[in-house]
Design a protein around this nucleic acid. Structure first.
Lengths: 246, 246
DNA sequence: CGTTTGCTTGACAGCATTCAACGTTGGTGG
DNA sequence: CCACCAACGTTGAATGCTGTCAAGCAAACG
């Protein structure tokens, strides 16, 4: 698990069929920060791309931290824990997004990362990433931007949790998902939710019943069409108006 | 403001009377990550230590990002903004803590940093910090840990906001302040609040009246003694029990 | 000393939670 | 293939916590 299997390894798994230099996510991920001719350097750092089954943990709170992970395919939730043991979804991660940044400080993961569908991640050992970052200035800056973005995203969630009604929280949540999905080339009006109502509620500081009620309400208003986990945004402008007006 | 005034400048201000290599915060700040004999390298990076008056902004949302800031003396609040213009306190920063990390991604500050008392900060230009980080591996890691800690801290706030009652939020807030103050050698049972009830409420997702009521309630229970902004923690264990029990 | 700002307390209203019942979906095994 | 079960989702009614509005008081500032 810890061994740096060279790419010439004879072990043929899906994990070896991709490389950063040819990854379809390279515009969203670390490759954007490296010149074309140096991309293969990343391939020597990212040699391990495990598959995680739906419901399984990529890591759990307390696990030793060694690497950060980039979602290649699939969908994850990040669960934080209160001192009383209560857990809460701290974020959802999709292709190109990074998991495990919270483990750097203490060398121990501070939360669980659970796959919400069968997924694949790229393992990026922090030591080697840092080594590469020392050599390639744009990569160094890119990594810092990734962490900065995580901080800003958390601030957005704090705003949600601190001062928005249930309607607004759900609206903002959907718009955020929509925007990230669009960035990845998905439909701009249809969302297939990967998580339960309980997960959404946990993330938004609401109970699952409240989430369900808001969905129903927005559907009654003709803003959404809700079919189980399939959400069609009928009037995105109305959703945005919900969030942007006080 | 942007010029890198060399230390030989004849301008004598309080800003020039300190150096990282002799700073009393060196155990809390970047110096911990540098060998004694290389500490003066930091002094060439951190040459500017402006004073910020109470109520003034160190930076505001939208300002161009150039540097991060370490609080040398004083106390700051970090205000984030919702799309509807509503603002919310996203954190409080005291000596040795870092401001401005959220500006790295977009080269623009994403929130306001307001001094809650007359303060002094050390200006750490990001470019030069990164340059030094490429040279000194422990410094590089230390910077990453600082950002990681910020992410974990935000997760803690999300837990507060998402699933705790007003009592618990206030208790957790006081304990967190207490812990950080202790780390800096202050009393372990007395807190002088630098912020208004409204600031606290904004941070905790409560109205100022609710904060006030919780203070009164905890005082009635003999857990706190509240005299204006002076809080004495009479029974810290009871406070902790409040947070740690479901 | 007066004005502004911050803090406390009370009464009431409102939104989200809680508790409960029922409906739906998807996976499993007969 | 169908039946069953467990997990997930929806909806209703009642409770309760926090917000809102208002008044009065204390402290800080000039």
């Amino acid at each position: 698990m810890n061994a740096c299997t060279p790419p010439t390894s004879v072990v043929i798994t899906p994990a070896l069929k991709v490389a950063c230099s040819h990854c379809n996510l390279r515009d969203l991920c670390f490759p954007v920060a490296l010149p074309e001719e140096s991309l293969q350097r990343l391939d020597t750092v990212v040699t391990h791309r495990p598959l995680i089954k739906r419901g399984d943990a990529l890591f759990r709170k307390g696990d030793l931290f060694r690497a950060i992970y980039v979602v290649r395919t699939g969908f994850f939730k990040n669960c934080a824990f209160a001192p009383d043991g209560h857990s809460q979804v701290a974020g959802f991660m999709m292709a190109g997004e990074v998991l495990g940044l919270d483990g750097i400080e203490t060398d121990t993961h501070g939360c669980d990362a659970i796959a919400l569908e069968d997924s694949q991640v790229c393992v990026v050992p922090l030591n080697q990433l840092e080594e590469l970052a020392r050599e390639f200035i744009p990569l160094q800056r890119h990594f810092h931007k990734i962490m900065s973005r995580e901080i800003m995203r958390d601030h957005d969630v704090m705003l949600l949790l601190g001062s928005m009604t249930a309607d607004k929280r759900v609206a903002a949540f959907l718009l955020n998902l929509l925007q990230r999905l669009q960035l990845r080339g998905f439909s701009s009006s249809e969302i297939l939710l990967r998580m339960t109502r309980e997960d959404i509620g946990s993330y938004l500081g609401l109970k699952l019943e409240t989430v369900s009620r808001v969905f129903s309400k927005l559907q009654d208003q003709g803003i959404l069409e809700v079919r189980h986990r399939n959400i069609r945004i009928a009037r995105a402008a109305a959703l945005a108006a919900l969030v942007n007006t006080s």
